[in-house]
Amino acid sequence: MGVKEIVKKFLGYRGTIPTATVVKEGEEERRLSGYRFYLDYLIKDKVAAVALAIITLFTAWSVVEGTLQYVGYATRHRALGWALLPSNPIALNFAASLHPPSLSHFPVYIFGTNFSGESILSRLLYAAPKDALAAYLVVFSGIIIGMLVGTFAGYFGGWADEVLMRVTDAFLALPGLVLAIALSVLLGSGYNSVLISLILIWWPTYARFFRAQALSLKSRGFVEASKLSGQNSLMIILRHIFPNSVDPVIAYAALDFGNVILTYSTLAFLGIGIQPPYPEWGSMSSNGLPYFPQNWWWSIIPGLVIMTVVVCFTLIGDRMQDLIGGRLTY
């Protein structure tokens, strides 16, 4: 058996839910599943392809800039963090204070400057890695915690399940933002405490998601068959329940990256998280509040950037959910 067959077998076996059968004459039945299935479809859809491109750009930039910032921080050459930026994002330059967006000194003033004369563009670019990290870290942690807790509760049932449902009910009773405010304030201001409180409020949704999946999967034929063949529960969970629950969660998660960025930015807007002078998309917007509406760009442009990134995540998630919902399949 060649590598191709093994890969084919593996791909064909997973993904019981979002699969489509495409048969052409004289061609063997081809099953697409998992990420391949989504990717295939997203690239074909023009709007989704643009969104995917923007997200890829955002992520790639965040990785590069984030690495530079981290290396700069670790080697005490902080200037490395703005080596790629058009200007130093945290250097005061009152001569250029509240410069409106313009094409002079392209691209430094393209989005204007704030009261301290710092380029909004540079500050936006500098802050991007923090948003990307928050989005990916919080969603993936949420998925992992939710998967462990939810799958075990759903698979084994009983009182553990009952307790879990009650606890998630209680968590979900509070708007995420309000609980996040309380937690981050209690934990003390800073990036880490925001991340911790976001993860703490983010897992219950996924726990419920995976619990529902485990409940429906555990009575399905192939799980029953493994039980009868004497596999232990852990193996069944690892081999059958986990892989089969992940697919539908992917679509929701894609949308959820955007939700994290929204909540994270709103916290930053309220002054929770990264502290001055370091920029943050949400706090940039709120710092402009006293200068609104005369210096509208200071508040509005960071908001527009957040919106653009979130719209892209939402679009991709939405298209994936269309696929899962079967509205585009037949």
Binding site: G258, L262, S265, T266, F269, G282, S285, S286, F292, P293, W296, S299, I300, G303, L304, I306, M307, V310, V311, F313, T314, L315, D318
Partner: peptide
């Protein structure tokens, strides 16, 4: 899709403006 992806503060600012 655009309005629910917009941060609350952006909507506030734009409406106010």
């Amino acid at each position: 899709l655009v309005t629910w992806s917009a941060p609350v503060f952006l909507v506030g600012f734009i409406l106010q403006l």
